[in-house]
Design a protein around this nucleic acid. Structure first.
Lengths: 199, 199
DNA sequence: TCATTAATCAATCACTTGATTGATAACGGG
DNA sequence: CCCGTTATCAATCAAGTGATTGATTAATGA
């Protein structure tokens, strides 16, 4: 257990540490207030060393975006999803989201920050946009499945419904604290898509 | 029609011009890339003159936040809202939103940017948070009214429903272009809250 | 063992950026 | 017409800010 590095660190290890520190600083100060010097200080290395591992600030932000994408992929594949009804899958989605908010709230903060930046930065957009698309498509598939298996309304538009759900969850994460407990929101979403009461 | 200022400009006029230029630049480069020099250049004045009218960058961002709030208030009071059913009011809300996206898309972009910053900046938060609250409360009232007058489901949770709607509209604005035409989303929202088919 | 590579840092560069200073020119009331 | 107020700018400051340079030291393989 060599906690404190006496001397050196392997290349990939450093890159990972730099990415982690950058994410932490983005949470604290925003992308706007992100400084290479602060990152280096947090990692405990010289600025030149930081530039040795990550050539530019742009590349650094790209590194963060990639690390977010990786975390997102892990989160998306956490639970088995076979042989379940639409409603069960949707609840699984809710559970995943609640779990992420609990365990890795900074993931959501940094994602929001990068999504904002993606509007102007094509390189970031290339990484972040597919993530949003993936999420929405996954929810849309769940809704379509649920409409077939009787969990949800048959007049449901899966794509629009998916936008509703991802929007609501994002908004909840953004305003969290102000709005009450998540289950109340989850329940309302279920009612919004449930099959009409008569049979 | 004195289009080009030969010499001077009144104080309030300048402040307004500075605010407008700042908003334009925030749309182009983000809050992150907002520079006092760029604003001054866009207005056509010296940096010192800018500081004469707006003492600091912080005050400048506050000015932008206030101008956004003012626009928001105008937008919110555009149509008469008395004597209508919940569904009619909701449709009015949709129309207002679509109109804003059409006529003043930068309003939405800047609002998103400031909302993001509000997370870290208390002064901005003090201006922006009430705006979001106001919007959500207004929608919640519409939903509550519609549940009473028979437009919407009776098992509707107005607060959760409002979060669903504002989240969906924000998400739509954020991803616009990717998702199809707004009416499809509006229609799905209506179905989500409509009274169950029987009766 | 020893040359090569990988990793690190002190010092510094070139430029940006918010803000200030001191002087100057228009405006407007008396 | 004159003087105080308002508005403006050229020049400059001080503190950053991303990035580079040149040298030094640990690891690594032949």
């Amino acid at each position: 257990m060599k906690t404190d590095q006496i001397k050196r660190e392997t290349g990939e290890g450093r890159r990972a540490a730099i990415g982690k520190a950058a994410r932490q600083l983005i949470v604290e100060k925003g992308l706007e207030g992100l400084r290479t010097r602060d990152i280096a200080a947090l990692v405990g290395i010289n600025i030149a060393t930081l530039h040795y591992h990550v050539p530019s600030k742009e590349a650094l932000i790209g590194l963060v975006a990639e690390s977010i994408r990786d975390d997102f992929k892990v989160q998306a594949a956490r639970h088995p999803r076979d042989g379940k009804t639409g409603l069960e899958l949707l609840r699984l989605e809710f559970a995943d989201f609640a779990e992420t908010m609990e365990e890795a709230p900074d993931l959501i903060v940094v994602m929001a920050e990068l999504t904002e930046r993606a509007r102007r930065d094509k390189a970031i957009s290339a990484i972040m946009a597919p993530m949003g698309d993936f999420w929405r498509r996954q929810i849309a598939e769940i809704l379509a499945l649920g409409a077939e298996d009787g969990s949800f309304r048959t007049d449901l538009d899966p794509k629009a419904g998916a936008l509703l759900i991802t929007g609501a969850l994002s908004e909840y994460a953004r305003t969290s604290g102000k709005f009450g407990p998540a289950p109340a929101l989850f329940a309302e979403i279920e009612r919004a898509f449930r099959r009409s009461s008569t049979t």
